[in-house]
Structures are given as C-alpha cells and as structure tokens.
Design a protein around this nucleic acid. Structure first.
Lengths: 223, 223
DNA sequence: GGGATGTAATCAAACGTTTGATTGACTTGG
DNA sequence: CCAAGTCAATCAAACGTTTGATTACATCCC
C-alpha cells in the first residue's frame, strides 16, 4: 500500500485522495455532464474506492457542489475586480468586455458544465450555478446604464445589447466544441483577437458614432 | 426511408401510436434531455407499451433520430428560402438575420435539445444534428462575404461577426430558460423586437457608417 | 362459406447491466 | 488502542433491451 502522503498537518492525509476525486469528477463532469458521469467512473479515474465519494462529499451531488465552489468564488472576486466607480468611458466598456471574454475563455470548462446542466430542467444546483453568471450580467448592465446616462450610447435596448454581447462571447468560448466543428479548430492565438473583435463589433454597434444624432438619455428596458 | 424496422411499409393504423410516441419523446427530450429521459417514461406518456419503441424505431436512439428528422428537413428548406442570388444590400442582410431570429425562436425546442446534447461529448447524432446549423452558418457566411466584396462592410472578421450574430441569437432564444432566469420572463411580443434590435445592433457594428472612411454603403438599419 | 394461415400491432414479463448508495471489516499512524 | 482512511462486497432501483404470447384483421384454399 502506498502511504505516500507525509501529511504535514496532522490528519490531513485525506488531501491526496480527496483532491484526486475532485479533479477526476471535474474532468468527467465537463466531458460527460453530471448525469452522464457515474460515480464508479469518477472513483476509477481517481484510483480509489467508490465509497470514498460518500465518505468525503456525502453524495454525488455534494461532489458536484464541491467541484463548483472554488470556481464560483473565483468568479465573484473577478466581478468585483472588473467593477468600479470610475466614470464611464469607451475604454472602460472595452476593458470590461475584453475581461469578460478572457474570463469566459479561461474558465470555459465551468461555463460549459453550467450551461449543459441548465439547458435541461430538473438539474441540481440551478440557482447557485447561476449566481456568478447573474453577477457578471449585473456588472455589465450597470456599466452600460451609466454609459447610456452619460449620453455615450445610441438608443439601444440595454438588455438586448447586454445579452447579445454575453451570448456571443459564450458562443465563442463555451460553445467552442461546437464552434470548432462549425468553423474549424481554435488556435490559442485567436482568443485575444476574438475578444477584441467582438468587443469592437459590439461597441461599434452601441456607441454613438460621429454621424449619429445628438445625445439624449432615454429610458428603456427589456420588458 | 430505409429504416430496418420490422415493418418497412404497412398499415397506417400505426400512425396513432407511433406519432404519440414521437410526440411524447419530443416533449420529454426537450425538458429532460436525451440521457435524462427513460424509455419507460416515454412509453408511459404515450400510453403504450415499452417494447413499441423497439418495434417502431429500433432503439431509443432511433427514436431520437426520428424526432429530429422532420425538424432538420424544415430547417434545410428554410435555409434555401433565405438564400438567393439577389445582389447584396443592407436590407437583404437584415432580412436574413431577422429570419434567422424568427426561425430560432420558433424552433427553440430543437436548438435547445441539440445544444444540450452537443455540449457533452460522446452524445449520439452529433454530426447529423449539426448539419442544419452548419447550413445556416454557411448561408450567413456567404451573404456576409458578398456584402464585404461589395464594399459594404467595415474591416471586420467575417467569422467573428457571424458567430457573434448567431451566438447572440441562440442565447436570446434557445437559452431563454437561462436568460429568463437572468433578466426576467419573456413575453411573446418581445421576440420580434429582440430580433430587430439584435439585427440592428450587429448591422450597426459591421456596416459602414457615414462617418467611416471610404463609405459607399447602404447604411440604414430599421429601428 | 368457412376454416386455416399470415401479419401488423400490442402487451406483460423478464433479461442483463448499470446506477447511487451503504455496510462492515481491514489497515494504518499517532 | 483508536480514529481516520480505505476497500471489497452488496443493495435496491432504474436503465435499455428482448422475448414470447396475444389480439385483430386481412387473405387464402378447399
């Protein structure tokens, strides 16, 4: 038997197996989905016994929750970082969308997992899974509203614009297993370019251009 | 056509049960996904015996294929209708995107099912499910390329623009169970407005505007 | 005309497998 | 010794599939 863990902190011997279980579950949930992954497959990939899932996480769903938790926290901290009280500007909007693009791309395993699960009903965790996405949207909405109040935007529907931006970024990155089947393989170098291009595309679509009529702050929401 | 079911062609008495099975499978696949729907649940909702799935469709996967087939054909005919050899114009682009928006919304059960299944690996039918989407993209790409050749577009990446448009439309409509959780309930009246607004948003982002260099574009986009 | 035969449609029951969960016992380092 | 870890073994339930029999209605031959 390999007792390979020196376990410096007292009874923290479980770190080894527990994190192996977490990593195995993460990779399998991503590729096979939550329902599509069996606890036996997780235990096998982690190289341990099936019952240790119950021992460490209580249940399969508890394991999923634990897989998601650090990601949700990391997303929340990133949202706080992107948010801020600086006055609205085109550069700020572009920085936000670019940051969003980078973040979605860097964590696309998470978004893929969340969306694959959310696209069907009756899936566990729907509410807590949605929280970071909701937070992202809230920050983007606030930024757009402030820009609109400052007269920077065309008379566009804020919600439509926001969902267009987020939707296209999600499709670029989280949907890339699909997108790559549709338009070809993704190269790592193209990610930044996509983020920049889509931000440009949208900002061109919502920012006032030199030829546009004079500023006016309107009130509009997506019903 | 050449399905090897026990009855190549026969009494149309089977229409009743067979179509009840199809309808039950369709509604269950949409809400529960393919893996998440049991053959017993399908048979129960159709009010017939379990083994009739094998009798009529060979297997559960054969049933899914048959559920999808008419939809795929309808999509293909719509693509042909949207395609055409008219000279590129802003109106043509807008009509295409608007038609795409209407179509995705009208058939969002299909896109939801396809994407939920495609977001995980090892799902059946991935290739044939992708076909109509691929066709949609091909037509959109050709339209954009012709518009670009005619000098109507800014110097945007066609693929990025195309995926942005399609991605945002998909997010609006197929993702609306998510989107409604994020921004509130969808009202039927808002669909057309969303299609118009997103088409406007994107066309504003890709079409050359009066202020742009070397502009010779049909500029206007309905609002 | 009427029994024999054929076939499409349907069913109840069971098959073998896989699922998530659970139990009880063995192995260790402290 | 003992509590933390780990395991093989097992459970009931659910899964997709298969079998064998039964119905209802044609078509056939005598």
């Amino acid at each position: 038997m390999k007792r390979t863990s020196p376990h410096p902190e007292g009874h923290r011997d479980d770190v080894d197996t527990r994190s192996r279980l977490l990593e195995a579950a993460r990779s399998l949930f991503i590729t096979q989905g939550f329902r599509g992954t069996s606890t036996r497959a997780i235990a096998a990939q982690a190289g341990c016994n099936l019952s240790l899932i119950k021992y460490y996480f209580g249940s399969k769903e508890g394991l999923l929750r634990e897989v998601l938790r650090p990601e949700i926290e990391s997303v929340r901290s990133l949202i706080d970082a992107l948010d801020g009280d600086v006055p609205p500007s085109a550069e700020q909007l572009q920085a936000f969308f670019l940051g969003l693009a980078r973040h979605i791309d860097a964590n696309r395993w998470f978004f893929r997992l969340v969306f694959a699960e959310l696209l069907r009903e009756g899936s566990p965790l729907s509410q807590e899974m949605l929280e970071p996405i909701r937070g992202n949207q809230a920050v983007g909405r606030r930024l757009l509203l402030r820009a609109k109040d400052a007269g920077m935007l065309r008379d566009v529907d804020i919600e439509v614009a926001l969902m267009g931006i987020i939707g296209s970024l999600l499709f670029y990155h989280l949907g890339y297993p699909l997108a790559s089947m549709l338009v070809g393989p993704r190269s790592p170098a193209v990610i930044e370019r996509i983020g920049l291009a889509s931000a440009d595309l949208f900002l061109h679509g919502i920012l006032k251009q030199p030829g546009d009529p004079a500023s006016r702050a309107g009130k509009e929401t997506a019903r």
